[in-house]
Design a protein around this nucleic acid. Sequence first.
DNA 1: GCAAAGTCAGTGTATCTGCACCTATTATCA
DNA 2: TGATAATAGGTGCAGATACACTGACTTTGC
Lengths: 151, 151
Amino acid sequence: MNANLDLLQTTQCLCLASRRAARAITRRFDKALRPHGIRATQFTLLSALKLAGPQPIGELAELIGADRTTLTRNLAVAAEQGLVALCQDEDDARAHIAAITPAGQRAVKKALPAWRLVQQELTEAMGKPAADSLRRVSAGPSLILFAARHD
Amino acid sequence: MNANLDLLQTTQCLCLASRRAARAITRRFDKALRPHGIRATQFTLLSALKLAGPQPIGELAELIGADRTTLTRNLAVAAEQGLVALCQDEDDARAHIAAITPAGQRAVKKALPAWRLVQQELTEAMGKPAADSLRRVSAGPSLILFAARHD
DNA sequence: GCAAAGTCAGTGTATCTGCACCTATTATCA
DNA sequence: TGATAATAGGTGCAGATACACTGACTTTGC
């Protein structure tokens, strides 16, 4: 029937594809990082904070492409575990600054070799062109602008 | 310092890239599907059920690359909304079969044009080669096998 | 200097995600 | 046939995600 012919297109759905890929990749990184006591999302958070330095929550959210309110809760978890610290901005009483703690730095340093191994294996498994393409897509302005559209 | 030089590699993290892409893409599809009362994940679920026919939960989970227990709960939400129905398998009392309901079929049919529009816009925004690459990666056996590794 | 508008972040609510563990049922084999 | 292994699925727990709304503070314009 016609309805099912139309539906066949949905097997190509980019939302399904991106989510399925993210789930599989996250599972793999989580598994490898587990012995080090942090999750893949936390590894991302900590390395971003280490590289970029103390950041207001909103800017950090934009940096890793997550919703600000999502980051608020992820930071609360990481703060609970002592991996990050939250403090008031001296200049602007509205802003809260997130910073990586010494314990957080130790955690990310300890986890780095495991991360690197999975990153290498995964790059090999999917092929370097595909890996480059994924990074380009996720980091490029097209996706960000695209997601922000309100039409 | 040396530690930060090492950390620079993590800006290339494929877990961050895949999650960031999935978040942005999901936000966009959710926004477009919202007027039709379903989410992107539900659209995926319903179209998969419509195309594949009634499925045991485990097989459906494998089909869309999600954890079985995740799907159990997503199906419960969809069942609550009357979009899918769950029933016992006649041959195997352990198995539960998920099937799309008439209401679910109406919902996915109603949402299809909106989905198609976003899919087209997104394909254009990221470029067809990148879209093909993403689908290949997410659907190919390499990722599935990769994620299942236990070493 | 003050009211209005803009900005920054937290909370309520709901969904998605998955590991560890559990129960129930079926298959296998001595 | 009865014990054991294998399989299908649910639950507890914890975290990730984001929209709508709110409160607090800052900036702007007069």
